[in-house]
């Protein structure tokens, strides 16, 4: 077998195949180079030892694995959010009594925030704190508004959007009241504050970071 491999090709065969056989030394150099190329992990010496004993699979050179790029951004984009209706409340959940515990929680939160609302506490400081406080769960009333039909609506504030308050009234109705051009009253333990909606046109999360500036007057 080996002899056959090492032997030169006959002349007619080489013509037929279109291959010229090289002489011994060249052939050896070629095989060595070839083996070294296809077995990059072994040294010259070990290749020779290896060849003495074992059959070699020539397509051995390891291909480097390309690392798959990880997908970034797990979040939803705006379109998907709209399709999923991420923040839209369903109608069957709109019941007033379901939100009473939320109101209790909110009252507790405000008391905690202002260290207990006593008659002696400074109203200005409390209002400063309420400016950055959260109003989800508060009972709010529309005190004044440019549109007279909004005036007098009372309910638990459920969602605060940028330009709109969503309120659940006692009749289990979700009312959407624009902040613009209306004044809201919030009552906690006998302490009443007024929110001027025109100045409050922010997302509730942005309000905690924003500085409020004195700007203009509100006439309503």
């Amino acid at each position: 077998m080996e002899r056959q491999l090492n032997s030169r090709l006959y002349e007619d065969q080489s013509k037929l195949l279109g291959v010229q056989s090289q002489d011994g030394r060249q052939a050896e150099a070629f095989t060595k180079a070839f083996l070294k190329n296809s077995l990059p992990s072994l040294s010259q010496e070990s290749i020779r030892q290896f060849m003495d004993r074992k059959a070699v699979v020539l397509e051995f050179a390891k291909k480097k694995k390309e690392k798959q790029k990880r997908k970034r951004a797990k979040g939803l984009n705006a379109k998907q959010r709209r399709e999923m209706k991420v923040f839209q409340l369903k109608e069957e959940h709109q019941r007033y009594e379901l939100f009473l515990p939320l109101h209790e929680l909110w009252k507790q939160y405000i008391r905690d925030l202002c260290n207990g609302l006593k008659s002696g506490s400074n109203p200005q400081i409390i209002q400063q704190k309420l400016l950055k406080a959260d109003f989800h769960g508060a009972i709010i009333t529309v005190v004044r508004s440019k549109c007279p039909s909004y005036v007098g609506t009372t309910g638990i504030l459920v969602q605060e959007m940028k330009h709109v308050f969503k309120i659940i009234t006692k009749e289990n109705k979700l009312k959407v009241i624009p902040k613009r051009n209306s004044v809201f009253g919030v009552e906690i333990d006998g302490f009443v504050t007024h929110i001027y909606g025109s100045k409050f046109q922010l997302r509730s999360s942005e309000r905690s970071a924003k500085k409020f500036k004195v700007k203009g007057t509100i006439d309503l």
Binding site: K85, V86, F87, Q88, L89, K90, E92, H93, L98, F99, P101, L102, L105, V158, Q159
Partner: peptide, 12 residues
């Protein structure tokens, strides 16, 4: 609190 009241009200 919202989830405790109504476990299906995921949106809020």
């Amino acid at each position: 609190c919202v989830l405790a009241q109504n476990p299906e009200n995921v949106e809020l």
